[in-house]
Design a protein around this nucleic acid. Sequence first.
DNA 1: TAGATTGTTAATCGATTAACAATC
DNA 2: TAGATTGTTAATCGATTAACAATC
Lengths: 220, 220
Amino acid sequence: MLKANKSCIERLYRYRNTLIKLKSIGFVKVFSDNLADGVGVPATQVRKDFSIFGLSGNKRGGYIVDELIEKLNHVLGKNKPVSIIVVGKGNIGSALVHYKGFEKEGIKIVAAFDVDPSKTGHTDDIPVLPTSELKGFVKQHNISVGIIAVPDAAAQQVADVMIESGIKGILNFAPIRLNMPEDIIIHHVNLELELETIIYFVNALNRKVKQEPKQWIEKN
Amino acid sequence: MLKANKSCIERLYRYRNTLIKLKSIGFVKVFSDNLADGVGVPATQVRKDFSIFGLSGNKRGGYIVDELIEKLNHVLGKNKPVSIIVVGKGNIGSALVHYKGFEKEGIKIVAAFDVDPSKTGHTDDIPVLPTSELKGFVKQHNISVGIIAVPDAAAQQVADVMIESGIKGILNFAPIRLNMPEDIIIHHVNLELELETIIYFVNALNRKVKQEPKQWIEKN
DNA sequence: TAGATTGTTAATCGATTAACAATC
DNA sequence: TAGATTGTTAATCGATTAACAATC
């Protein structure tokens, strides 16, 4: 496959989102400049990204919206829905189960898992099963993506079971590093780290304003 | 200030986390190699990061754990707790309010806000106020960081009010681009995008295995 | 001292951006 | 045609990594 990194794939999804909005406004064709404005990148980035995936338009004529969406759907595998699971039915896990944003992207959480028997059951619209049933469920339903939303101390163990079960991609909310085989795709959402870095830069900004009030004000 | 990007700051926090763990095991001094192993980066990266912030050790002697933690605390502003707010008391907002991971990092959510009167009140341990009171609250308590956890359609408006109120840093969970003055620090957590990219790479991996079964197996 | 580790300068690498020829 | 836009090659930029002198 080609040299497409995470950022590049994210941009493709954003181009697609922009295209869908533009289509809903009535656009029939777009130029790389339009997509660039919509996503906030240079037009040359758009064309570069497209060229990596052989997404071509018409010299001088831009791109046909419908065709481009269709091609992006194909590249991004958006034509068929994907079933995923969540392990951990605490604060984060519960929020994800009820989160409305996934379904419209064709992502369906089909089951949650928790070790706490008081949390398991079928009261929600999706079942909450004991974690001991994780492996069987994943194999039976051929799940390949799962979310880890358990306490730090349990995360590695859960990850191990997931991988044993055949899961290939993991979104991990536990703020620790997990040991994984190289061929497993893992992304981390580290909420405290996100906040901490924001706080750092806000503080840095404050220090800067205080230290160099003159230049700072001129520059802004 | 120096050329420290988000990744670099994140690594500093990770070094600090590793140091705290090593200290709890009884380490008194560490080498850049130890920190590198703990965080999963090359040792040269560790020393480079430190040099940017003037964090020095002893040639041949490594770094004194306590001193290094203290210096990192100073650089990262971890010596005083930070109060933040959350706007939107839906799934995500509620999960964040109850999330246990912030407090140990000195981050305290002091209030949540929602437009829905049925969600406001003081039943939780932190107050949920009407969004109309956001500006007053932020000014009164001098809050500089806030989280956006409202539906997409409301996110830009909430961001505008936050900035008017004096907030300088925002963590945004709404999967849309927000227009901001340049001096506002904004980070995005886009959950659907995280899952979508994982799904993409998992699919890409599957295709690869199917297309080049021989080389693939050899390589792994 | 000899060996090990730091701190920094230089090289590499990958991604972004600019330039521009192709062409509709 | 002339002008505008694509697609690609080359240049730039920033971050990571390697090399190595300094030194404890």
